[in-house]
């Protein structure tokens, strides 16, 4: 099964850039990603620019509305994601728990719906 791990955290809660903690934090991300690759479970994974760069779009009555900002103003913001290929949710939870942001933010695990391709 495919699982999406959504990485949420409140702004300015993680280690600040240009500190030794930040270096360690980035190292932990690299180590996690390496584990995913070595175990053959990584399908994708990216970090996002912060929500001040987000643009939201709606089509209503065939007309496009474009808005500055994220869809929902929440304290914890989506900052990145991974997509894993796992046998079951236990595996997905195990890999998602290695995401360093989980120590101060929240990682949401969602199964990806299977839709036929043929």
């Amino acid at each position: 099964m495919k699982y999406l791990a959504l990485i949420y955290s409140a702004p300015n809660t993680g280690p600040a850039p240009n500190t030794p903690e930040f270096g360690e934090f980035m190292g932990a991300y690299q180590a996690a990603t390496r584990t995913y690759q070595e175990d053959g479970v990584l399908l994708a994974g990216e970090a996002l620019q912060d929500t001040s760069t987000a643009t939201s779009i709606r089509i209503r009555n065939g007309k496009r509305e474009t808005m500055d900002g994220p869809f929902a103003e929440t304290k914890e913001q989506l900052g990145g994601f991974y997509i894993f290929e796992c046998a079951n949710i236990d595996e997905a939870i195990r890999y998602a728990s290695m995401i360093p942001t989980a120590t101060y933010g929240t990682v949401e695990v969602r199964p990806i719906m299977e839709i036929s391709k043929d």
């Binding site: 099964m1 699982y3 796992c86 046998a87 079951n88 949710i89 236990d90 997905a92 195990r94 199964p111």
Partner: peptide
Amino acid sequence: RQAGIPFAIPGKEQ
């Protein structure tokens, strides 16, 4: 069913 919760005894570490 949909989230893939296994019908299994967890591994040693869990």
